[in-house]
């Protein structure tokens, strides 16, 4: 008698937890909005404009995923996060996906239980320093005070770099990138270190950019990638293939402008047809319809268009493609094929 009662209770609980474990895709669809973890503000990558609309490189990846899943790139709720809170927000379910210029590392992948998406920006850590300091190499930085953002890989790389070269430094910590820059400009530290992309934009925004130089040494690998939490492989696949689709679209020459010409009907190029969903139905594998990639690209174009509109040579950040060029033009951006 007692045992049956316990069994019923157990069954009810099991059922309840099964009901509660709805997949992320279903949750997002039911909610009608994608929760995307971004930074509280990093020039070119994610920041609100004067009307409160979020803009930037990371932001466009969020919108592309929302477009693929929900059919509308505007259906995104941006969850601003600091370096320390980003993973907690993702893991606690406050965010469905994270695009927060985050470096993929083994401990984050395994210990923090994240699954990283394909790398969407290859970066590396450098140093910005005042020209009148006379220092021209990072090896001369012994004893320097260094402005640094806490909770980031740059903080750890810095410690590694200085200890492996048997040099001392004095960290000047801050919570956000903006505070670090403020510390550097008000001479609270000798040098400012972060990813080279951010250094370039920081330098461009200084009062007199020519009075500052970026030291030639790049002391780390920083593959920046989006991430989702462990435990929902279908959701991982969706996010992963949206990023891949944007990169592949550039390789195939599919842009926002010519997308509909290419995808109106099946053409001669089977790769484009698969991307467009006019040949086979790749979307069915990830629980979406055949048009998923079309919608993702239709949001803000392919990888190159997103890059150029947010951080590329014509923007104030003026970043070159460099490593981030497609493998066809000498970079290392190389996405697995859709087939």
């Amino acid at each position: 008698m007692r045992i049956t009662r316990f069994m019923i209770l157990g069954a009810v609980l099991a059922l309840a937890s099964a009901v509660a474990q709805a997949s992320t895709l279903e949750e997002v669809k039911a909610r009608g909005v994608l929760n995307c973890v971004v930074t509280t503000g990093l020039a070119g990558f994610a920041a609100p404009d004067e009307n409160g609309r979020w803009e930037g490189f990371d932001v466009e990846f969020c919108r592309a995923v929302a477009a693929a899943v929900l059919g509308d790139g505007e259906k995104v709720r941006f969850v601003p996060s600091t370096g320390k809170t980003r993973f907690t927000l993702l893991n606690s379910g406050e965010g469905d996906i994270l695009f927060r210029n985050t470096t993929e590392t083994m401990s984050r992948d395994t210990d923090l239980k994240l699954t990283f998406l394909p790398v969407n920006y290859y970066d590396g850590q450098g140093f910005l320093i005042r020209k009148d300091s006379g220092i021209t190499s990072a090896m001369d930085l012994s004893g320097a005070s260094v402005c640094i953002q806490t909770g980031t890989t740059t903080e750890l790389n810095l410690a590694d770099f200085f200890s492996s070269n048997k040099m001392d430094y004095e960290p000047v910590n801050s919570e956000t990138n903006e505070e670090s820059i403020a510390n550097y400009t008000s001479n609270r530290c000798d040098t400012y270190t972060t990813d080279a992309s951010a250094l370039a934009s920081t330098r461009a925004a200084l009062k007199d950019p020519s009075a500052h130089i970026i030291l030639p040494e790049i002391i780390s690998k920083e593959p920046l990638a989006g991430a989702v939490r462990h435990g929902d492989d279908n959701w991982t696949d969706i996010a992963k293939w949206v990023v891949n689709a944007l990169i592949i679209a550039e390789e195939l020459g599919v842009t926002k402008a010519n997308l509909h010409d290419h995808c109106a009907a099946a053409g001669d190029n089977p790769s484009i047809n698969r991307l467009c969903g006019t040949e086979g139905n790749m979307g069915a594998f990830i629980g979406l319809d055949a048009q998923w990639a079309v919608r993702a690209i239709d949001n803000a174009g392919n990888y190159a268009e997103i890059f150029n509109a947010t951080i590329g040579p014509d923007t104030p950040l003026a970043l070159e493609r460099g490593l981030n060029a497609s493998w066809k033009s000498g970079g290392i951006l190389y996405a697995a094929p859709i087939r």
């Binding site: 503000g41 020039a43 920041a47 404009d49 990138n177 104030p316 950040l317």
Partner: peptide
């Protein structure tokens, strides 16, 4: 925790490439 009060708005505004610094 990611709510943008005036200080937060200020910080994220500073990340606008038009106005940094």
């Amino acid at each position: 925790i990611g709510l943008l009060d005036p200080l937060g708005i200020g910080r994220s505004s500073l990340a606008d490439t038009k106005w940094t610094g």
